[in-house]
């Protein structure tokens, strides 16, 4: 027996999703506005997209952001996956409690504190050992690895926790060393989670403003830093165009990640329930 879905709930859904999507759609629509005045429609035009291509400041910043995002997401995926293994497959060890706390804490820590603390670390390190020399792409990448590895760890950990360990135990009983078993059995099974972790780390890095502002040095402006300094003064049509491009790219990435997760879950149905 199937009961009718209440009209009240349909209107809740309609209002909720309108609230979520109308502002974004508005930005996308106005990115095609010919008028320099952002609020007045002056006809359809692609001119702001064209101007983006000639804006060297934005292109440089985008290139820096992209490089940092690829490097930090890759390192964060490696470290985050190791952290997830250390939390689910390594039994008990000294300092496990502290470790659990350190993995979870970056998720709730205000960025402003993380940013300040990392800056103080880099300055003190430079004072003590002369490394890192100055601030820029390197310090930004190190900081992004630190906050995004927590997200990767959480995603991979939930997958590992839901996964049946009997396969790994069987492989061990058959004489596989823990290293081979992890490499041949565990990692292929958590690969979809690692990939979605990588994508999340990538978008988090691409998006971060506050931490980056603290740990960046002169001459190293990432895309969010450029966007923030422009947006602080109000709406601008070229930022509308940039926003539209970013939203389209990210949506495609998320669609890929969603597809990977779903196809991964199809292979091991127990995981599906834990992904919320």
């Amino acid at each position: 027996m199937r009961r009718r879905y209440p009209t009240f709930l349909i209107s809740v859904l309609a209002f909720g999703y309108a609230f979520l999507y109308v502002p974004i759609i508005l930005v996308m629509v106005y990115s095609f506005n010919d008028s320099r005045l952002v609020s007045i429609w002056g006809g359809f035009s692609l001119r702001w997209y064209g101007e983006l291509l000639h804006n060297e400041q934005i292109i440089d910043a985008a290139w820096l952001s992209l490089r940092v995002a690829v490097m930090s997401a890759t390192a964060a995926t490696v470290l985050g996956t190791l952290a997830a293994l250390a939390l689910t497959r390594m039994g008990r060890y000294r300092g496990r409690f502290l470790f659990t706390g350190m993995v979870a804490a970056p998720l709730v820590m205000p960025e402003i504190i993380t940013g300040l603390s990392l800056l103080l670390l880099f300055v003190s390190l430079q004072d003590l050992v002369g490394w890192p020399n100055g601030r820029g792409a390197l310090t930004i990448t190190l900081s992004h690895i630190t906050f995004s590895m927590a997200y990767v760890a959480v995603i991979v950990q939930s997958r590992l926790a839901a996964m049946d360990a009997t396969l790994e135990e069987a492989a061990m009983d058959l004489g596989g060393t823990p290293f081979r078993v992890t490499l041949d059995i565990t990692l292929p099974l958590v690969m979809p989670a690692m990939l979605s972790g990588w994508l999340l780390a990538f978008t988090l890095s691409l998006d971060d403003l506050v931490i980056t502002s603290f740990v960046s040095g002169p001459g190293a402006s990432t895309l969010p830093m450029v966007i923030y300094s422009k947006v602080k003064l109000g709406l601008t049509p070229d930022i509308n165009a940039l926003a539209t491009l970013i939203i389209v790219v990210v949506t495609l990435c998320v669609a890929c990640a969603g597809w990977l997760t779903l196809s991964g879950n199809a292979k091991s149905p127990t995981v599906a329930r834990t992904h919320n």
């Binding site: 979520l20 974004i24 403003l209 969010p224 923030y228």
Partner: peptide
């Protein structure tokens, strides 16, 4: 997925989008 999707797009840009909704014009 539709709830999570905007969460993936840039936080900064989503806040920016509200300037276009709430502004005087």
């Amino acid at each position: 997925l539709l709830i999570i999707l905007p969460f993936w797009t840039s936080f900064l840009l989503r806040v920016y989008a509200w300037m276009g909704v709430l502004g005087d014009h």
